[in-house]
Design a protein around this nucleic acid. Structure first.
Lengths: 95, 95
DNA sequence: TAAATAGTTCAAAAACATTTGAACTATTTA
DNA sequence: TAAATAGTTCAAATGTTTTTGAACTATTTA
């Protein structure tokens, strides 16, 4: 893979994060519930292992598509609309 | 990978197609030139081999992001805005 | 304090994506 | 018709992503 500008690298991370059925299902689930949810609850709803959940939440977070807040031993996750808007809604402006 | 609905499978193909620096550069190049261009010209501009070009154009085409028209021995390619709009601009509506 | 719960890390395995070069088809030009 | 050009196909090699289970940390509850 070639060397990229910062801007391109960030886009690539966003599109990679969106390019997976589990992660898209997580996004859909968060959208439907319209609030922060714990990783555990989402993982159960997706029927994936804790390890796999941890991996996918990390990818989403590093892409900037979710924000994470730790409360006690749980982590609550919610969609970051700013990132979605930037890379999707305003795709052409930011390409 | 899990079994998916048709709708999800199509989204995945679109986001996978966008999740690559060469393909994003092709899209950017087509955007800048704002017209159908031949695979050869684009491939040269991207400095990739014919084989690699052929591979990337197929991915873009199968995702519906470009349309292709053969003229003589060349293939001309242009962006399909309908697909971009559907999956990016109207992301939330179609999720 | 011990046990339970939520999530992470690690390395190995499995699955998938991309690049490469050679051989190919189709079309145009000399 | 022969040579050149545009693009495709194939299989092998390489690179990247995802899954797995075991061992781990941090926090809460009994």
């Amino acid at each position: 893979m070639k060397k990229q500008t910062q801007a391109t690298e960030a886009s690539i991370n966003v599109f990679k994060a969106l390019a997976d059925p589990i992660r898209l299902a997580i996004i859909r689930y968060l959208r439907q519930h319209d609030q922060a949810l714990s990783c555990g609850e989402i993982g159960q709803a997706m029927q994936i292992s804790k390890t796999s959940g941890s991996y996918h939440f990390k990818i989403l977070q590093e892409a900037g598509l979710i924000t994470v807040r730790k409360v006690g031993r749980e982590k609550f996750v919610k969609l970051d609309r700013v990132t979605f808007d930037h890379y999707l809604i305003h795709f052409w402006q930011n390409l």
